[in-house]
């Protein structure tokens, strides 16, 4: 099962390596990872998507909690949460296909953010399935490059 884990950490040198190292050292695979600042100064939030059974995730959380730089570990998959990721697709596009791609992008509430003579860049935000859906549709035009962020997530409501 997939778990979304948010690790709230002091923004100190090496903290990402400590967190990520803990996963690799105990042979847990990270599907995606996103790091950024939070509402509090000098505090960062690392959002990790990992898959594994509940025992493994329990073990990861406990090990993370032992690090002096870690303030809090949240398993967001325990309750309802909102999650988003973002992608940019660079697609082969000519004058002929450009319009079609724009329509596709529009349907997915994606934005065209660059147009060149033979290519376009489409930016899209959403959940993993939506991004995958758009990517599949764009494949036939020829994907020149794909870049995706790791997932970020928040619990719903006041939590």
């Amino acid at each position: 099962m997939k778990h979304i884990i948010a690790v709230i950490v002091d923004n100190k040198p090496g903290v990402l390596a400590r967190v990520a190292g803990l996963f690799s050292r105990r042979a847990y695979n990270i599907d995606s990872l996103a790091v950024g600042p939070t509402e509090t100064k000098d505090v960062s939030r690392i959002t990790l998507v990992v898959h594994g059974n509940d025992d493994i995730v329990e073990q990861i959380s406990k090990q993370l909690n032992k690090l002096p730089d870690v303030k809090k570990v949240l398993d967001l998959s325990q309750g309802e949460c909102l999650s988003r990721e973002m992608a940019m697709f660079k697609i082969h596009a000519t004058a002929k296909t450009r319009k079609e791609i724009c329509t596709l992008a529009h349907t997915f509430r994606a934005k065209v953010i660059d147009i060149a003579e033979e290519s376009m860049v489409v930016e899209v935000t959403g959940d993993t399935e939506k991004l995958n859906g758009l990517e599949t549709l764009l494949e036939k035009y020829g994907l020149l490059a794909v870049v995706r962020t790791g997932k970020i997530a928040l619990a719903r409501g006041r939590k």
């Binding site: 400590r18 190292g21 803990l22």
Partner: peptide, 14 residues
């Protein structure tokens, strides 16, 4: 050394 000893220390400092 902080990199090398990360998995074998409780904590380390540079």
């Amino acid at each position: 050394m902080t990199g090398i000893t990360m998995p074998i220390t409780k904590h380390n400092y540079l």
